[in-house]
Design a protein around this nucleic acid. Structure first.
Lengths: 157, 157
DNA sequence: CCCAAGTGGTTGACGTGTCATCTATGAAAT
DNA sequence: ATTTCATAGATGACACGTCAACCACTTGGG
């Protein structure tokens, strides 16, 4: 009995949807990364961090808040900020109210970088992802994503 | 003018769908990787390579075919196979008809590994991804993924 | 036959993500 | 106050992915 016909496997429709989805997701990520890198010397991760900072009026956020917003492991964020700091995209600042904590601050270079990157990035997202999608498809996508996120959260080990 | 209200940005609905989707996709990948690693000492990438091998009746495939099927860069595949080979999951074999080429072969250990990994992995996919999805949602997903893949292929640099 | 261009695959350098472990501080209970 | 537990963050080791360059072989003209 092959993997394909094993009852524990997915049915034909699911199988097909799953493979398409996985392939799409992997390739889209790769493409977005390449586009950002080529046009703005930023990775998708850099971009997401910078968005968190620009979203906040003070351009200054506690690390754990960024980690929470992006759902990143704290060590991932820590490593990533070291690299971003070396490139001058962000800076650090002590937190007066909690001596353990650290603020991460958007530098002028960081601000310039994301302002230049955003339009092209958004355009790529629109062109590759949303182009030709109906309103209904978009809302189905959001609904599905939310449901899956809920299940992920519910099963948290 | 903030990034949010910039006309070059996405509209509210798209914005929300995009953020949900990106978050879902990132977290789902992380979870699938962790589940596979914990239960079977395999990464999602290992799994995908092994599927390519088990899908083929001879359990022996040319590298470039795997690269094509998974849409991996050849160097990625090469690096990955070195690691998988070290762990005994696959072996290599010369190609008589093309002296440059190499076959990659499923070892008994590799076969055992994927056979033990598959049921749990599939179960996780079903539980986290498909659970509660309607037939229509599944087919919308497949349609959307296909359309995006097409756009990705069309824009190939 | 030969040479140019293409293809299959490898390699090294480097950026990225995870895991486990660690330090330092804060908070809560005794 | 002291112990205990939780939280914020850093660090080192390691797996992973990309890019660019490379080697070896094949192919397709001249």
């Amino acid at each position: 009995m092959t993997l394909m016909t094993d009852p524990r496997w997915l049915d034909e429709t699911q199988q097909r949807a799953w493979r398409k989805y996985m392939s799409m997701q992997a390739q889209l990520n790769a493409r977005l990364n390449r586009q950002l890198q080529a046009d703005s010397k930023l990775s998708l991760s850099d971009f997401e961090v910078l968005v968190q900072l620009t979203d906040n009026p003070s351009h200054k956020v506690r690390m754990f808040e960024v980690a929470q917003a992006l759902q990143w492991e704290k060590s991932r964020l820590s490593h990533h900020l070291v690299r971003m700091q070396k490139r001058g995209l962000v800076a650090r600042e002590e937190c007066p109210s909690d001596a353990r904590g650290a603020f991460i601050v958007l530098t002028p270079e960081g601000r310039t970088a994301i302002e230049e990157a955003a339009p092209q990035h958004v355009d790529t997202v629109r062109r590759l992802f949303f182009e030709g999608m109906t309103e209904e498809q978009i809302s189905t996508l959001a609904t599905m994503s939310e449901a899956i996120l809920k299940r992920l959260a519910a099963e948290e080990d």
